[in-house]
């Protein structure tokens, strides 16, 4: 597979074209927004938290396939998880993207074992300038979760 085909895997293009949980939440939720001013990617999300559990989430925004697919996959991955689990997942994702140091959560022998679909985004690592695209949703999530635990609704 060429580096480009590796980057634009089918699952990524599917999430780009059919983003999961696009829209806004009606009930109580926290909201956070992020953007990459240099390239114009915009991402926003609503997260509904009850008793430390993420019971629902919705995303808004616009941007490249990587930023939108990363956000869409993140939506799939976080709903039903506790805030701590979502933070742990965020950390693992950032380790995978080599945004933060740590042992790679991706076992090369068993792809898909830890991060599921998200591992399809590994191809982004070969394109350093695009890592910030993949990261945008997760940075925005961190902000939302901080807000949720600050009781700032």
């Amino acid at each position: 597979m060429s580096q480009l085909d590796e980057l634009y895997r089918e699952v990524i293009l599917d999430h780009y074209r059919n983003p999961r949980k696009r829209g806004s939440l009606k009930g109580p939720h926290v909201h956070a927004e992020g953007n990459n001013p240099s390239c114009g990617d915009e991402f926003a999300l609503d997260v509904a938290v009850e008793d430390g559990l993420i019971i629902d989430a919705a995303m808004q925004g616009q941007g490249c396939s990587i930023s939108q697919a990363s956000g869409s996959m993140m939506m799939d991955a976080i709903v039903g998880k506790s805030i701590d689990e979502a933070r742990d997942l965020t950390h693992k994702f950032k380790v995978m993207m080599t945004i933060v140091d740590g042992d790679s959560p991706v076992d090369p022998e068993r792809p898909g074992a830890v991060l599921g679909d998200l591992e399809a985004l590994q191809g982004v690592r070969r394109f350093p300038v695009r890592i910030k695209c993949a990261d945008l949703a997760w940075t925005t999530l961190s902000e939302a979760l901080d807000r949720a635990t600050d009781g700032d609704r």
């Binding site: 480009l4 980057l7 634009y8 074209r17 390239c39 990617d41 941007g63 490249c64 396939s65 990587i66 394109f127 300038v129 695009r130 695209c133």
Partner: peptide
């Protein structure tokens, strides 16, 4: 529907 960043890459 190819985003410009994707085109540039």
């Amino acid at each position: 529907d190819i985003h410009p960043h994707d085109i540039a890459t």
